[in-house]
């Protein structure tokens, strides 16, 4: 009984085996990191083959785990190889009125992101923060970004406990979770901007 699931699994497992075979033969650390990122795609495909709404809800944690481990490992790779003093220039966005223009645009982007809320809203709000940091060349706000990440995590935990123990307040919980993901994505996006352009002075 070769159902559709088994046929899909057959194809995905062959691609996973090819990926792991390449990984077993590779000796360069950087290429190993890239190949593992490649090998994670078949694992997402195996989850997707489930084909229900549950599959989509399981792909998100699977994806996030892969991305976050990649974030930690690539930073570890940079430190381990001593690559930190590389001459990276940030785009250096030219603004005529240094004091106000980036601030206004950033505030607009952040406000619009809050209106959108959720994942996309976090992305847009984060873009606003990146734009502000890049146009000012500021990098000392790093601790604030780190703190925002911690706060969003705490908000999420609160939302979880409301859902579990006070389910009649589900509306408050879903709004808390939405604010949490907004803060989280915004913090992550702006962090990428800070890390990238920190040593440009």
């Amino acid at each position: 009984m070769w159902n559709e699931y088994s046929v899909g699994l057959f194809i995905v497992l062959i691609s996973a085996a090819i990926g792991f075979l390449a990984l077993a033969r590779e000796t360069d650390d950087f290429h190993r990191l890239l190949l593992i990122d490649l090998v994670e795609i078949p694992s997402l495909a195996i989850i997707a083959l489930l084909g229900t709404d549950l599959a989509e809800a399981l792909i998100l944690p699977g994806l996030v785990v892969g991305i976050s481990e990649l974030l930690a490992l690539s930073q570890l790779y940079i430190v381990k190889e001593g690559l930190r003093s590389r001459p990276v220039k940030s785009p250096g966005i030219e603004v005529i009125e240094l004091a106000h223009a980036p601030l206004i645009i950033s505030v607009f982007l952040v406000a619009y992101g809050i209106v959108l809320s959720g994942f996309t809203g976090g992305g847009i709000a984060g873009l606003g923060v990146i734009f502000y940091i890049m146009s000012r060349g500021h990098s000392e706000r790093f601790e604030i970004v780190e703190m925002a990440s911690g706060i969003s995590w705490a908000v999420w935990i609160i939302a979880f406990f409301v859902f579990m123990f006070l389910p009649q307040y589900w509306y408050m919980a879903v709004m808390l979770a939405a604010v949490g993901i907004l803060l989280k994505v915004a913090a992550k996006m702006s962090l990428m901007g800070t890390m990238w352009g920190a040593h440009d002075e």
Partner: peptide, 20 residues
């Protein structure tokens, strides 16, 4: 870390296959 990252592939894959 590389091994741990590669380990997530069989881990999540197996969990999804249990569900299916």
């Amino acid at each position: 870390g590389l091994v741990a990252m590669a380990g997530t592939v069989p881990l999540f894959g197996a969990a999804a296959m249990v569900a299916a």
